[in-house]
Simulated assay, not measured.
Amino acid sequence: MPPTNRPITVALVDDYDVVLVGVAHMLSPYRDRIVIAEIDTNEAVADVVDIALYDSFAQPESDRGEISVLVDNPRARRVVIYTWNFHPDLIDTALHKGAHGYLSKTLPARDLVTALEAVHAGETVVSEAPRTRSAPGLDWPGRGEGLTDREAEILALITQGKSNADVAALTFLSPNTVKSYIRAIYRKIDVASRTQAVLWGVNHGFTPDHDRIQHWRS
Rank of each mutant, 00 (worst) to 15 (best):
H215A: 15
Y16C: 03
L95H: 04
H87D: 11
V45K: 10
F172K: 12
F206S: 06
H120M: 08
A58L: 12
G22F: 09
A168T: 04
H87R: 07
A52L: 10
G146R: 02
L170R: 11
D209E: 06
L20S: 11
D40P: 00
E38P: 00
H204Q: 10
L107G: 05
D14W: 00
T106E: 08
A169F: 10
R217V: 15
A168S: 12
E43I: 12
K97G: 11
V35F: 11
V113N: 04
A46E: 13
A37K: 09
V69H: 13
S28C: 03
D14F: 00
T4N: 12
E151V: 03
V10F: 07
V167E: 01
F86C: 09
R6Y: 04
D63R: 14
V35Q: 15
V18I: 15
L90T: 04
A44E: 12
L138T: 08
T114H: 04
A168H: 01
L116S: 06
A11N: 07
I189H: 06
A129S: 13
V13D: 07
H215N: 14
L27A: 04
F86E: 08
V35E: 14
R78D: 08
P2I: 13
G101A: 04
N164T: 01
A24R: 03
P108E: 05
A94S: 11
A37N: 11
A115V: 05
A58H: 11
V80A: 15
A58T: 14
F206K: 06
T171F: 04
A129H: 11
R78W: 00
E43S: 12
A37V: 09
G122P: 03
D50M: 06
R77F: 08
H215P: 06
R75L: 14
I34E: 05
A46V: 13
S104K: 09
D149F: 09
W140T: 02
V71F: 07
R77H: 13
R31H: 11
T124V: 15
E151R: 01
H100T: 03
A168P: 02
L20Q: 14
T177Q: 13
L103D: 06
V45W: 10
L53W: 07
D47F: 11
K105I: 00
S163N: 01
L138V: 02
R75W: 10
L155G: 05
R217S: 14
E66V: 15
W140Q: 03
E117R: 10
Y16R: 02
L138N: 07
N176Y: 14
Q196I: 03
Y82H: 10
G205K: 04
I81C: 08
W200D: 01
G146D: 05
E153W: 02
V79T: 06
T124R: 13
D32E: 12
F86A: 07
W140I: 01
I154W: 00
A44Y: 08
A168R: 05
A11R: 06
D139C: 05
D139K: 05
G201T: 10
V19K: 09
A44T: 13
S163M: 00
H215L: 15
P2G: 00
P29Q: 09
F86S: 07
R194W: 05
H25T: 14
R110C: 11
A152Y: 00
A118F: 00
Y54G: 08
G101R: 05
Q214V: 15
V79S: 06
N176H: 15
V126N: 03
V23Y: 10
E151F: 00
A156T: 03
G137P: 01
